[in-house]
């Protein structure tokens, strides 16, 4: 039983680390602000779920598991809220996004 738990937590931990990395790379390579936000919010939701889930499995039924799940709960509440506030502030500030003709360097002026 312990082997199964260890293997599962190891797989979740490495998977979570992989998704965190993919989110980071996405945030760097995406051409536009809103697509970058889309990529980076992946690391706010799925990454912590897998990484902290793996840690919770590792510590079994103990106080650490309660703390890890509390962290996961707060991250899942605050992450999307912060991303929403950021997207709203950006769109209110007039940041256009999504249409391909905007140059990646300056998303506000359309391509000449």
């Amino acid at each position: 039983m312990a082997i199964v738990l260890d293997a599962l937590s190891w797989a979740m931990l490495v998977g979570g680390a992989l998704f965190v990395l993919i989110g980071g790379i996405g945030a760097l390579r995406m051409p536009d602000f809103f697509t970058r936000m889309h990529a980076s919010s992946l690391t706010d939701s799925l990454g912590p779920m897998l990484v902290l889930g793996g840690l919770a499995l590792q510590s079994g039924w103990s106080l650490e598991t309660v703390k890890v799940l509390a962290i996961l709960l707060f991250l899942l509440i605050t992450g999307p809220t912060a991303t929403y506030a950021l997207g709203h502030a950006a769109s209110v500030a007039g940041l256009k996004g999504g249409t391909r003709e905007y140059r990646a360097s300056d998303p506000r002026e359309p391509r000449a």
Binding site: A27, F33, M37, S40, V51, L75
Partner: peptide
Amino acid sequence: GPTVYDRVLAVNMFGTKTVL
């Protein structure tokens, strides 16, 4: 980050990663 909101996005990501 060209716009200031990219920087805020990066700071938010950095903070979440610190927690992890």
